[in-house]
């Protein structure tokens, strides 16, 4: 059992008190303090959770599409490096495009609604996944290639049994970035094109000047981010224990 870090906890506590003090001084509904936000969490709990559900659903579908397509592609491009090198500059180009810049495409393709959002989310998640998988796959240690060839493994067997597992640690890093990207794009696309989701909730909170509700929404997003991160950490520890133990 870890001892509670009283001294350490005092830092966020001081921050909260300062925030509350500032809010009291400003005395404006447009600058709520932590107390007001806590109250707002209580009263808007159901709505926020419901809207966040839509957001996460689209983010998850987009992310899943990206994983299912980009991991195999990345492994393939790494193994057949000649093709990979050909496409490398294109991947690099796409990587420099910030994910939200593709969001307005949703507006152009607006007729398709959910589908367009998911496509844009999948695109945003695809780039870090593809980059990391490709990079990991082609930098699998030459010794492992030799081993695979000395055991007379075919290309497909090598990709499945050597390249993929050896790349998993870097794929996990890519997946973290991709998850963050999908959530980001999911929210941004909702804000530009109101239908439903937490982005819409935030937008509406702004329109009704209920900043406390908006901050409550943000608190939920932050909490979701924390949970996703903790979950990823757990999964990585379970599936990639060999990587971390070996490195230690």
């Amino acid at each position: 059992m870890k001892r509670t870090d009283v001294l350490g906890l005092s830092v966020p506590l001081v921050a909260l008190i300062l925030w509350q003090a500032m809010a009291l001084l400003k005395h404006s509904p447009l600058f709520p303090g932590p107390f007001e936000v806590a109250l707002a969490i209580g009263s808007h709990f159901r709505e926020i959770a419901g809207q966040l559900g839509y957001t996460l659903m689209r983010a998850a579908i987009g992310f899943a599409i990206a994983v299912a397509s980009m991991v195999p592609l990345g492994i393939f491009l790494g193994r057949f490096h000649k093709i990979g090198r050909l496409l490398e500059p294109v991947i690099d180009m796409l990587a420099t495009l910030p994910p939200p810049a593709v969001v307005p495409l949703v507006m152009l393709f607006t007729g398709t609604g959910d589908a367009a959002k998911i496509v844009v989310i999948a695109y945003a998640a695809a780039v870090p996944l593809l980059m990391n998988t490709y990079e990991a796959s082609y930098s699998v240690h030459p010794m492992m290639n030799r081993v695979a060839r000395s055991l007379q493994l075919g290309k497909f067997e090598t990709m499945l049994h050597v390249d993929l597992p050896a790349s998993l640690p870097m794929i996990a890093t890519g997946a973290r970035l991709a998850l963050a990207s999908s959530l980001l794009v999911s929210i941004t696309s909702e804000m530009l094109l109101s239908t439903n989701g937490i982005g819409v909730f935030l937008q509406r909170s702004q329109e009704y000047f209920s900043i406390d509700a908006g901050l409550a929404g943000i608190a939920f997003i932050s909490l979701t981010g924390l949970i996703i991160n903790a979950l990823m950490f757990k999964l990585e520890k379970r599936w990639l224990y060999w990587h971390y133990r070996e490195a230690a």
Binding site: M191, L202, S205, Q206, G214, I218, I221, S222
Partner: peptide, 12 residues
């Protein structure tokens, strides 16, 4: 604070 996306901060 880290998981908060910029899009969420702007309107608030």
């Amino acid at each position: 604070l880290q998981p908060i996306p910029p899009a969420a901060v702007v309107p608030m």
